[in-house]
């Protein structure tokens, strides 16, 4: 498993649009991808679970990927979050 801690920079946090875009990108990977938000594990491929986790701007979370393409998945997840998910 590979992991990295990042901080949410979107002013509105991971609301519908950024969460949807993020989850959609994550489903392109074969690896299991989870977001660890203060000890709670959220399936990164599920927009519903991301929205329900109510992740606000400034929140630190750890992206955890395990599987055949884990490094690519992690790189993509981190760069999406750090770039503010198109916002």
């Amino acid at each position: 498993m590979v992991s990295k801690t990042v901080k949410i920079v979107n002013a509105q946090g991971l609301h519908m649009r950024p969460a949807g875009m993020f989850a959609k990108e994550m489903t392109k990977f074969e690896s299991d991808i989870f977001l660890d938000v203060q000890g709670k594990k959220i399936n990164a491929k599920s927009v519903m679970h991301i929205i329900a986790a109510c992740i606000k701007c400034g929140t630190e979370l750890t992206v955890e990927c395990s599987g055949s393409d884990e490094q690519e998945a992690l790189n993509q997840a981190v760069s999406l979050i750090e770039s503010g998910l198109g916002e």
């Binding site: 519908m16 649009r17 989850a23 959609k24 399936n43 491929k45 599920s46 927009v47 519903m48 679970h49």
Partner: peptide, 10 residues
């Protein structure tokens, strides 16, 4: 957004 939500594989 509704389409995104319903497309959730989970």
């Amino acid at each position: 957004g509704h389409i995104l939500m319903l497309s959730d594989p989970f």
